[in-house]
Design a protein around this nucleic acid. Structure first.
Lengths: 322, 322
DNA sequence: TTGAAAGCGGTACCAC
DNA sequence: GTGGTACCGCTTTCAA
């Protein structure tokens, strides 16, 4: 691998001049520039980012922490982040914390060794202080971890409310919410939105907590068997909704005639089942993009207009509701 | 951020000694070590990896190029890679080429700026030379790109053959293969395995090419409508299989009585439909892990026992076959 | 067992 | 416009 010195020698100039050329900075004669560029090409020279970063104390890279990878939500968010980061010239160092606190800590340490310029967190494992102590620009996604830490979240409350509204308007009376794990703030927000609309309209509802990863179908079956009059179901993911639909069909229920279902996320699950799922669509890509946009503002030492951005959701009506 | 000098000052020793302590290398008095460790703790010191890499010309990081992210196969492979990489102390720089050659080239340039120690490619966009010219340890996943480049692939030929065998034994006569795009070598290998078993047993089959991302259901419907006697279907992904199942059900066909279906990948799609899909399971995680294992051998300048590893597949019989 | 110092590959200031 | 050079933070000889 050629270095700047060799290029300088080849072009018969000093390293300072080469540096000016590759950074497009300061005065350099057109002739000289041509010479240098020729040398660069000939030697196949690529500037060493370590040396550069060592001096500049910035790395043009950011860290992203997500709790899993096998989940369309984080997946989409990640794509949004990566897309804009690439455009802005930032590298993404990915940490899949796998819900493991030690793993996450080790990753953060690595991140710091690499002088990351900013961090996007979508994780529940650590206390806020661990992140703020890092003293670098910080954006939280999917939940607000503190008033001070800027965030991009999906409108979970609104999503719950929209689902409730649809179910109520369509005439459901006996409603159940198959939620994600209720330790998650996002799950609670959705619940709150869902319940508050129902309460206002004099409807009550049951709640069943399920894991997002590998939810246990027997919990669903048990509930449905013991509550045969259920006629409206809200699920915190399309995957759960597909599982619910499956159990209902095995029980001989007709959807949406006897029971209506609303899923969440608008993933491909919602389109491969019969009938296709009505679902709440989160703009994952937009969440990621917005987070990167805000982080980049912070990294440029500018200030954010508003700190907490909420990305709207919308209902996609398909065939599991009337 | 504290640096080595400050630590040295705090501990009243030279930077050389600090370096010896953090690297656990060379002689250092037990007393002095304690002193240094105390200073490190007090100043919350983390060695700067840029400076270190600059000197050592190695980065303890690898590059991984995948053609997409929204695909359970690459997803699983990535997890396998990441898992072992983390264990071995390597950072993973991810490139989602998004099937875009320019994007990939830009990423490779970035990788080189960061002195990656090795590269894992699972991409079809570039010619081999582009990769081998990099002159760093290289592993190809999912396909063999050249005799010289070590690879880890899934037993696609075997997967096709197993599916064919199952269908033939279960009595299917009019068989169709809903494939991925036939420009992909993996798709062709599966086809070859599938067809060669069928040929040996005197059965022919049709082939319909579909996109892996967003396959068009109307192509499936058209085929099924014009070939009502179809009784055995092999699909190159569970997602395609789920779509096929959906169309069959809409046409009033009973599965597996009238038509049998075999999917591919053993993803969650296979478990949410009724009936559950029989499918061919690829060990994505193992593929990733094996690739990282081989790469790490190469990076340690050791030589590989065998160059091309084929990871076996297995059939998971569920409810769409007899 | 420890320290001084050269050097890894760049950047940017200061002279000319 | 261009070149010399100190310096970024760390590793590793070499000498003491």
């Amino acid at each position: 691998m050629a270095n700047i010195k060799q290029v300088a020698k080849e072009a018969n100039v000093s390293v300072a001049t080469v540096s000016r050329v590759i950074n497009n900075k300061g005065y350099v004669n057109e002739e000289t520039r041509k010479l240098v560029e020729k040398a660069i090409k000939e030697l196949n020279y690529v500037p060493n980012e370590f040396a550069r970063s060592l001096y500049k104390k910035t790395s043009k890279s950011i860290g992203v922490i997500v709790p899993h990878l096998n989940n369309p939500f984080y997946y989409g968010v990640l794509e949004g982040i990566e897309d804009l980061a690439f455009e802005k010239g930032y590298k993404v160092m990915l940490c899949n914390s796998a819900e493991n606190s030690e793993r996450e800590a080790e990753y953060i340490k690595q991140f710091m060794k690499y002088n990351i310029d900013g961090l996007i967190i979508g994780s529940n494992t650590e206390e806020i202080k661990k992140y703020t102590d890092l003293n670098i620009p910080l954006i939280s996604i999917d939940r607000i971890i503190s008033h001070d830490v800027p965030s991009v979240t999906s409108d979970n409350f609104g999503g719950g409310a929209i689902a409730a509204k649809k179910l109520v308007i369509s005439g459901a009376k006996n409603i159940v919410h198959f939620r994600g794990p209720s330790i998650l703030i996002t799950v609670l927000e959705r619940s709150n939105g869902f319940n508050s609309y129902l309460r206002e309209h004099g409807v009550t509802c049951d709640e069943v907590d399920l894991a997002f990863i590998d939810p246990d179908p027997s919990l669903i079956r048990d509930y449905l068997e013991t509550h045969p009059d259920t006629d409206g179901i809200f699920c915190d993911s399309d995957y759960i909704a597909a599982l619910v639909l499956r159990e209902l069909q095995l029980l001989g229920k007709s959807v949406p005639k006897q029971v209506q279902i609303i899923g969440y996320d608008n993933t491909s699950y919602s389109q491969i089942v019969i009938p296709k799922l009505t679902t709440i669509s989160q703009q994952m890509f937009d969440i990621g993009k917005e987070a990167m946009e805000m982080l980049s503002i912070l990294m440029n030492k500018e200030t954010l207009g508003s700190k907490h951005h909420i990305i709207p959701v919308r209902i996609i009506e398909r065939e599991t509701t009337n």
